[in-house]
């Protein structure tokens, strides 16, 4: 039995036994190589699940839908390791309760897809995998190229990219970490971030977004894929994540009991910047 059949029947069993109220997985997409999220509430619906190498989206973002988990019932979700990493971060930020999430884990290696052992978040230990994780070669190459630029060149690079931004906020909608009920860009008293899509406003939005994800990004790449104008958002997140590791030896999502890196301190933190 392939993994797709295995998870179909497991999802059906979870639903028919009443253990979970909902299974979030993938269904057929609009074209043969695309998959779209499928929300199964009955065992019959669970038969429509598809699981193959095209299932690359991070479905954990649906877990923070307002009100979804407030009834205390459980939800099962198909997750790759980056999605499991997101769940760790969401638990440590009190947005999820560990026992409410049943994880149907899988990993994709080239075209091969394998099932992951364990169903509860505590069954997964991601520490080493995350620490040694490197982004895809094309991201890494591009990151190195930007690193070698001088500040003026780098500014021009990002200016060119950010000027394309149409402020559709797809990056925000797709990101599991953007769970605020009211995003800072939607605050208009006072309006810190300009909503029109001119270069200044676009810079403001993208820099605020980068800072809000520093030390929180699970590197799933969803924002990058979602962007309709192809801004390489992954590069920003990658650079911020690197900064946080170098400065604080902190890698987001290693486990679900981390304290937020920018809001916590250790007694031996350097204080050289404080006068």
């Amino acid at each position: 039995m392939g993994i797709q059949e295995q998870y179909r029947s497991e999802a059906a069993a979870l639903l028919s036994s009443g253990e979970v109220k909902l299974v979030i997985g993938f269904g057929e997409g609009s074209t043969a190589d695309r998959r779209r999220p499928l929300f199964a509430r009955t065992p019959e619906e669970a038969q429509k699940f598809v699981l193959d190498a095209a299932c690359i989206a991070n479905l954990s973002t649906y877990l923070v839908t307002e009100g979804l988990l407030s009834d205390g019932k459980k939800v099962a979700v198909f997750l790759k390791p980056d999605g499991i990493r997101s769940v760790n971060i969401l638990i440590s930020e009190a947005q999820l309760k560990p026992d409410q999430v049943v994880i149907l884990g899988y990993a994709i290696d080239k075209a091969e897809i394998t099932a992951l052992e364990g169903r509860n978040i505590s069954d997964f230990s991601l520490g080493e995998e995350i620490r040694s994780h490197t982004p895809p070669p094309h991201i890494l190459q591009e990151a190195e190229r930007i690193e070698e630029m001088n500040p003026a060149e780098r500014f021009e690079f990002w200016k060119a990219h950010f000027s394309k931004c149409i402020k559709c906020y797809a990056c925000r909608q797709v990101c599991p970490m953007c769970y605020c009920r009211r995003c800072i860009v939607d605050v208009n008293q006072p309006q810190w971030v300009s909503t029109s899509s001119h270069t200044l406003g676009n810079f403001e939005w993208n820099i605020v977004r980068a800072f809000h994800l520093a030390g929180r990004c699970a590197a799933c790449g969803a924002c990058d894929r979602a962007c309709p104008v192809n801004i390489p958002l992954r590069l920003v997140n990658y650079r911020m994540g690197k900064e946080v590791i170098d400065a604080f030896d902190y890698c987001a999502g290693e486990n679900s009991s981390q304290k937020p890196v920018l809001a916590s301190f250790k007694q031996d933190d350097p204080e050289t910047f404080i006068l």
């Binding site: 930020e93 009190a94 947005q95 769970y179 605020c180 304290k259 937020p260 920018l262 809001a263 916590s264």
Partner: peptide
């Protein structure tokens, strides 16, 4: 308030 408790730690 989203209840992330960042302020509580901070």
């Amino acid at each position: 308030c989203a209840g992330c408790w960042g302020c509580v730690y901070a």
